[in-house]
Amino acid sequence: MAPNGRRLQDRIIDLILARGLAPGAPMPAEPRLVDELGASRNSVREALRALHTLGIIEIRHGHGTFVGQAPLTAFTPGLLYSTRQSVRSGASALRDMLEIRRTLEASLIEQVVERADEDFLAELDAAASAIDAGELSAADQHFHEVLYRRVPNRLAVELIELFWTVYHQVESDLEPPGDDPGEIGRAHRVIADAVRAGDAVRAREALVRHFGDIEQRVARLDARA
């Protein structure tokens, strides 16, 4: 977008923040925004559409324009594009994304252990067992969603979910998992058992080992490029 358009987006964001408009609150009507911002109607509409794409503005046709939640999923198209482009010539973006995810998950596991109660542990056990019985990739994702569900850092949890979304889109470019599918189930079971035992160190070590298989698959993709 042109610099003027970018500045107009920033001014709309400043307006939202200055007025303390919470997610879900109605935005000023378009004619009022045109007057207050001193911009043309087309420029304001273009800026609102761009902010809608980012989730900062929610356009409800027939109802008006509202302040959005700005979820991290709004960044999915850009991250997916850069990752898929990387896979064509190697796996640098995918490798970097996995490194960030591994670091993030390992740093949060202590909070998981601290907040574990019997209800949570029962759900985690069920998620670990489902890996052997269900569709591997979906069951693996579900286990990690359950694992971090009670972590209060919502930004970190959204990042983990974002990485999963992108990974599923490029997984077909990787070699299949190792020859022993049961090993993936056992790896998750070790994590669940460590959490149940209240052993954050063992849980972290098991989690890092769990990333070994996929990181090796990414490394082989990189080597073929």
Rank of each mutant, 00 (worst) to 15 (best):
P3V: 07
P3S: 12
N4G: 11
L8R: 14
R11N: 08
R11H: 10
I13A: 11
L15A: 04
L17A: 15
G20F: 04
G20Y: 04
P26K: 01
E30M: 15
P31R: 12
L33H: 08
L33C: 11
L33A: 09
V34L: 11
E36V: 03
G38F: 02
S40Y: 01
N42W: 04
E46M: 04
R49W: 01
A50F: 01
L54A: 15
G55K: 06
E58H: 02
I59E: 10
H63I: 06
H63F: 08
T65G: 00
T65P: 01
Q69Y: 00
A70W: 02
L72D: 14
L72N: 12
T73C: 10
T73G: 14
G78F: 14
L80I: 00
Y81V: 10
Y81N: 12
T83W: 03
T83K: 04
R88S: 10
S92C: 01
A93C: 03
R95I: 10
D96T: 12
D96Q: 14
M97C: 01
I100E: 15
T103G: 15
T103S: 15
L104C: 09
E105I: 03
A106V: 06
S107T: 06
L108P: 01
E110P: 00
Q111R: 13
E114F: 01
E114G: 00
R115N: 10
D117F: 00
E118S: 12
A122K: 04
A122R: 08
L124C: 02
L124V: 05
D125V: 01
A128T: 10
A130Y: 03
E135D: 15
F143P: 08
F143I: 05
H144D: 08
H144A: 09
E145D: 14
R149P: 04
P152N: 01
R154L: 13
R154P: 02
V157Y: 06
E171W: 10
S172V: 05
S172Q: 10
E175I: 09
P176E: 14
P177C: 01
P177K: 02
P177A: 09
D180C: 02
G182I: 04
E183L: 12
G185W: 11
A187M: 12
H188Q: 13
R189E: 14
I191H: 02
A194L: 02
G198P: 03
D199S: 07
E205Y: 00
A206V: 07
L207A: 09
L207C: 09
V208M: 06
R209G: 06
F211L: 05
G212A: 15
D213M: 10
E215I: 09
Q216M: 06
R217T: 09
R217G: 13
V218R: 06
A219F: 09
A223V: 03
R224C: 02
R224P: 00
